[in-house]
Design a binder for these strands. Sequence first.
DNA 1: GTTGATTCTTAACTTTGTCTTAACGTTAGT
DNA 2: ACTAACGTTAAGACAAAGTTAAGAATCAAC
Lengths: 216, 216
Amino acid sequence: MAHRILIVDDEEDIREFIRYNLVKAGYEVRTARDGEEALSIATQFRPHLILLDVMMPVLDGIETCRTLRADGAFDDTFILFLSALDQEQQQIAGYDVGAEDYITKPVSLSILLNRIQAILKRTPSSENHLLIDPEKHLVHLNGKPITLPRKEFDLLGLLASAPGRLFTREEIYNRVWGNEVIVGDRTIDVHIRKLRQKIGDDFISTVKGVGYKFIG
Amino acid sequence: MAHRILIVDDEEDIREFIRYNLVKAGYEVRTARDGEEALSIATQFRPHLILLDVMMPVLDGIETCRTLRADGAFDDTFILFLSALDQEQQQIAGYDVGAEDYITKPVSLSILLNRIQAILKRTPSSENHLLIDPEKHLVHLNGKPITLPRKEFDLLGLLASAPGRLFTREEIYNRVWGNEVIVGDRTIDVHIRKLRQKIGDDFISTVKGVGYKFIG
DNA sequence: GTTGATTCTTAACTTTGTCTTAACGTTAGT
DNA sequence: ACTAACGTTAAGACAAAGTTAAGAATCAAC
């Protein structure tokens, strides 16, 4: 399994340039236009490393970094700043928001790759990873696409929509089956089982007497 | 099935010289005059390899390459630059836009063929290949033209417009038949069947309870 | 217009895979 | 250890898609 890298930059040229080369280097890559998008993608994508542009509209790199660090869910995520100016670098140093390093723009590919490799080679990447694409009605498990039947997809989609949050059985019934439909007690369990067969036991955990939750 | 090669050069002499020799070597070849034409042809033609002149009007090779790389649909496509000057080569090296290699002009035929063979011998060429030409209302399957009736063509065109994406039956009804027309439940199925009879079962996959999608 | 050919839709039936149920087994908390 | 809650399994019900042929609609050619 490859390491996951999230690139955050408002300039498409730079995003795509880096993306292409990191994909070629064997990483799994996602991109975001600004800090806000980065936060929402990072929650699902769980990158091992984030390349974060300092100067961005909507939410700049420093603020994004601070928000990520405050979350607690990204303590294991490395953050690399991309900055154009020495001035900015000093600013970053001064703020000390929890970044690992910074890279100057224009980006030298070999330097970038070297730093990324240096950082990530110590981090094991092979933990299970699940990605849900509602548009394509597809689930990627460790890079491999799995097509799920409707009910299973809906159920997984609901649970994964809020990783860590607990869904009661009643809530699941209401949101997946709708209030009118009445199904037996074991129906959810069977679907959960089908899902666990397909995506492994690590993603859905049971809270006895209450319901289920998705482990991000 | 032969590998597909796209030649992009603004000089007709060079285009035809290379084209002639590559066809003789057993490749399926298309040509384009400039980057813009190249992009539109490449989308349909899906070449395994692109020979890209650096200096071109309208859209130069470097920009074309970058656009292709940004697309994501051409990640598996090899790109070879044709450049006249050492200067240009340095520029390419500096940009590092995702090309595999470059060839100096004037082109030595044996060198060119050797490089192409070296690159393509690792790539399987024989995957099924479907080409849709909305202008001419024509579909090419593995090089052979197939004429489809209007509804079938529209349906295939819709699905193929976003490979991998899932289209719900409702969406298909709306986009192929229009909101006013009401047709029975089995109408889509029958058209899907006709299509599968003509282009094979490998391109359209059913997601039961949801819809259909095109496998790129 | 009439003809003939092609395309499109419908309807009846078959097949396929999903969803649910029910019976039984296992686990965790008291 | 008891028990309520969840896990597992397989079978049957069910719904959705596949198939086929026939007839309706469309279109082109004369």
